[in-house]
Amino acid sequence: MKILVALDQSPFAVTVLEKAIALAKQQGAALSIMTVAEDFLDLGDYLDVASASDKIFAATKAAAQNYSDHAKAAGMNAEIVVEQGVSPADLIIAHAANKGIDMIIMGHQGKKGLSKYLIGSVAGRVVSHAPCSVLVIR
């Protein structure tokens, strides 16, 4: 069994990771940790997008390494996947399809307030379009 845990950089992400580790151990599953550095291409007229994207990617990569270290300390080796793009949900869905993932685990928190309703929930989109089961942690 292959489990993909998709994490953002919120404080809730560690809770999601811990539940994913416990389930992976229980099932004898391989665990992959995925983080997505979100691109904001529509801001290119207002700021140096390349510089901002590089900083966001570096922070996302560092977070992924921290999550991997956390998993290792819990006795679980996990593959790290760091992607960059405009739609985290689409990247998570594509990775799951390409790698034959059996289950995606992710948190319900993320975008808040008005942006959640204007852009749509990442978890909601993944649940609707994923090629496998999705466990949403509350």
Rank of each mutant, 00 (worst) to 15 (best):
I21V: 14
L31R: 01
G85T: 07
L41Y: 05
L47D: 03
A64V: 05
G75P: 09
D102V: 04
S133L: 13
G107A: 08
Q84D: 05
I137A: 01
Y67F: 15
A71D: 04
G124C: 09
K99I: 10
A13H: 06
A58D: 11
G107R: 02
F40D: 00
A6K: 03
N98Q: 15
S53F: 00
A71C: 10
H95P: 02
N98G: 12
A6T: 08
D69W: 07
E79P: 03
Y46V: 13
A74Q: 15
S68Y: 11
I33A: 01
P88C: 04
G120N: 05
L91I: 05
L114C: 00
L118K: 00
A74G: 06
D42F: 03
G85W: 03
L43C: 10
I80Y: 00
K2N: 14
L7E: 08
H108R: 13
S10N: 04
S121G: 07
I92S: 02
Q109A: 11
T60I: 07
Q65C: 00
S128E: 15
V134G: 06
N66L: 13
D54C: 02
R138V: 01
G107M: 09
A94V: 07
D48M: 10
K99A: 15
N77F: 08
K112S: 15
L114A: 07
A6G: 07
L23Q: 12
D69L: 15
D102Y: 04
A59N: 14
A37P: 10
V86K: 02
A58I: 05
S133E: 14
N98C: 05
A30Q: 14
A6M: 09
V81I: 15
L135Q: 10
